[in-house]
Design a protein around this nucleic acid. Sequence first.
DNA 1: ATACATTGTTGACAGTGGCTACTTAAGGGG
DNA 2: CCCCTTAAGTAGCCACTGTCAACAATGTAT
Lengths: 203, 203
Amino acid sequence: MQDAPNRPYHHGDLRRAVIETALDMLREEKGWQFTLREVARRAGVSHAAPYKHFPDKAALLAEIAMIGFDRLRASLAAATPKAAKTLRDEIAPIARAYVAFGTDNPALYRLMFSADEGKAVGMHLNERALAVFDILLEILRRGQAAGSIRKRPIEGQAAAGWGLIHGMTMLAIDGLLVPEKVGSAPLDAALSTLVEGLGNPAT
Amino acid sequence: MQDAPNRPYHHGDLRRAVIETALDMLREEKGWQFTLREVARRAGVSHAAPYKHFPDKAALLAEIAMIGFDRLRASLAAATPKAAKTLRDEIAPIARAYVAFGTDNPALYRLMFSADEGKAVGMHLNERALAVFDILLEILRRGQAAGSIRKRPIEGQAAAGWGLIHGMTMLAIDGLLVPEKVGSAPLDAALSTLVEGLGNPAT
DNA sequence: ATACATTGTTGACAGTGGCTACTTAAGGGG
DNA sequence: CCCCTTAAGTAGCCACTGTCAACAATGTAT
């Protein structure tokens, strides 16, 4: 990392570097211990340098969590199929991308949902977080309009979808989706049940 | 707590007291910071006393997590309806009890699922944790036998059920089941979708 | 060129936490 | 009655963290 002995006194873009380093750390470690000092260490600066760019630890964490939502939304958007024949074909790639984001960035995902003093609520009502949720809502809306999804209050269906995917993601992060308990393809199976729960039986 | 100034030098039953105190702490605090010193403080003993009963912090945590599984299983067993007419009537009370356990013991629930160094896997393959899972499996087995549940690999259906309930529990603990996102009765709605996903459309 | 603002470094402080001696009290078996 | 094991208390080590203050280097506007 800091193999630049002739690095200038001023980093030049430390703010970004700190965020990037922090994201790296959250990508690698499952366990959710995060210290400003280690971020500084790995960024190759002194332990107090980050304070020139962030008032305190919480501020850095908040900013990183927001970036997490942005990236998650981008991931889901990228995974959205152009034209899907069945409801399952529409939902499955997105769900897979969601879970993959969680397992690829375990600590970041935890951070995004960490309820430190009920602060998570505010985070999740932020527009950048709501943008993620909107992807789910949009699918449901389109499905209802097309008749492939039951006509039910959409928030309730969103609760089911979000709950299931969030739960599967958490279980996956914690390594609990072992064949002994949930078989060999738990996400596929869970999606089948979800799709059938959402799907319109009339079709 | 330690309002016994004439308390004898030997506590008498410190082991149990430590566990009980720890469970109390995990019941109150959402945030998952757990220190042996505070347990000792609240138990009214010196900060080193617990070491006479537990080799280290991890041992205490492991034991507490196991007790958590026992209590969760007991909760679910107590909530199991005697005779349910519909699949939903059979599942809903148990699901509600599960979520309630999580929101009533937020930090304990987190502990039971905390993947410290992939240690969670071992915990969840322990018989006391599997006993909880068996309640879910039993429902599915009975439902399939009675024809009220689709004939599908049971592990996959278990994945869906577990994932959904775990997810809803986590979201509830983090206070994220706000009406703005998931409506006013998210658990009810999610259960509807789940039941319909599991249920046999032929009936 | 010089004064100022910015962005680093160094060092320290206060608090915390796990854990390990050593000491002291209590109880029980010989 | 004595001794030894057990279970508690006291003190402290060591590592670590967030944060702040003082200082140094660099860039920038006048």
